[in-house]
Design a protein around this nucleic acid. Sequence first.
DNA 1: CCTGTGGAATGATATGTATCAAGTCAGCGT
DNA 2: ACGCTGACTTGATACATATCATTCCACAGG
Lengths: 251, 251
Amino acid sequence: MLWLRSCKLVLLQIDMGSTIQNPACQHCKDRFSSIFCKAEQCNLEQIDQAKVCSVYKKGQVIFHEGAYPFGVYCINDGKIKLSHSGDDGREQIIRLVKAGDIMGYKALLSNERYTATATALEDSSICFVPKDLFMSILQKDASLSFEMMRILSSELRKAELKITHLAQKPVRERLAETLLFIKETYGLEADGHTLSVRLSREEIANLVGTATESAIRLLSEFKKDGMIELEGKKIRLLDLQQIVKTANLQD
Amino acid sequence: MLWLRSCKLVLLQIDMGSTIQNPACQHCKDRFSSIFCKAEQCNLEQIDQAKVCSVYKKGQVIFHEGAYPFGVYCINDGKIKLSHSGDDGREQIIRLVKAGDIMGYKALLSNERYTATATALEDSSICFVPKDLFMSILQKDASLSFEMMRILSSELRKAELKITHLAQKPVRERLAETLLFIKETYGLEADGHTLSVRLSREEIANLVGTATESAIRLLSEFKKDGMIELEGKKIRLLDLQQIVKTANLQD
DNA sequence: CCTGTGGAATGATATGTATCAAGTCAGCGT
DNA sequence: ACGCTGACTTGATACATATCATTCCACAGG
């Protein structure tokens, strides 16, 4: 049942993609990351054969900051956080990774060591594609290269926006923004309100870029204002409009 | 004499590059951005013919946030700042661009509008390469694609590091870091101490991500501590070691 | 049952930084 | 020379946020 969900996701992403679809992906005979659907069929098959899938438990580290990369990882199912460990040991969460995403490509492409640590936020099923194969296919497959560049550009855009907000917006606005971001990334549960990830307050703080206590305090305020509801690690977004307003977005 | 300097720079960057050199670049019959030296010869010639060079005066805008991109820009000579204009109008400088760099590729590759404004920090000579040509060469030239991915990955790495520092480091450390960054990017004048860009205090503040007054105050402190010397917009780095220490770097 | 443990919450306090306000200075046009 | 303008500087103050300390609570293990 794990990969049934994954299939649906992959197909969804294909439908929404702007570039040419790859028919092989629609078979979806195995769990697979959507990025490779941009690749040509023969290459897709090669990847399909070479990839190694495995399951990581919640809290488990997939790769570690400072280590050398030997390939890229594709998420079939699950949720991962990518984080820097700051100079003083405090963690800064850089990115949230979801099913259909890939990770670890940055270090590979710039030929450096990992600059972030990937940790499973819940039990996750992840494929590993070896470096040599990935690079050699990238060499000959322009569609895949384009897709990679598109992803990189888009990540860079987001990162730069985050820099601006971090420098200019107060914590309150950034927290509201982060709640919306989590919702965009991982979506809501069936009730249409509850965020479908369980993050600790500390993790939320490390995502926002603030102290844990500040995050807690502001979440309580949001609750008092009727914007959200809190129940342990469950966060329910009650008044989306109000949250958007608090986030003070305009891009 | 303008392009003599540029040639030197290009050659330098070729020598340092890890991928295959392109002999065409060594002729350097015209000013040219070093990135394209990774391209295959025939493509290089095509670009060389299609590109349009022009000179921008200090303060002039090369492209504007929100506009649609029609190609990429390569800097032959000069200095450019790329900046977001935050929601409240305050500017956040995202990147400093120097001779040999390219800019405007992010918007092109992700097929979106510019998210930043490019402004000349001094009179600059810049080439424009049309979108269609650039994209079509990217399609068939894997070396160029790889180089683009390498650049994107590296920018992303820097951006993520900046996010972490912005979230975790005090202004004092970030300012010291910024001074070192400016030195790395644009280098020093012949005396071996003076930064070779003239930035206003406001621009420095927008690079650090702080208020102008804070930047001014801290610069004065640095001066009092004998780390730097100030003379109008000239900034001389006297005690590099001390600045590094103040920046508190460890990556 | 007690007890230990880790996360969450709250309060008190300290402090870094932004903001507001004024003042200085150099350059520039008239 | 005059006043004007814009950038820089400095000071006083307010405020947001970090930090430290404490309490609360749920939960697991003995």
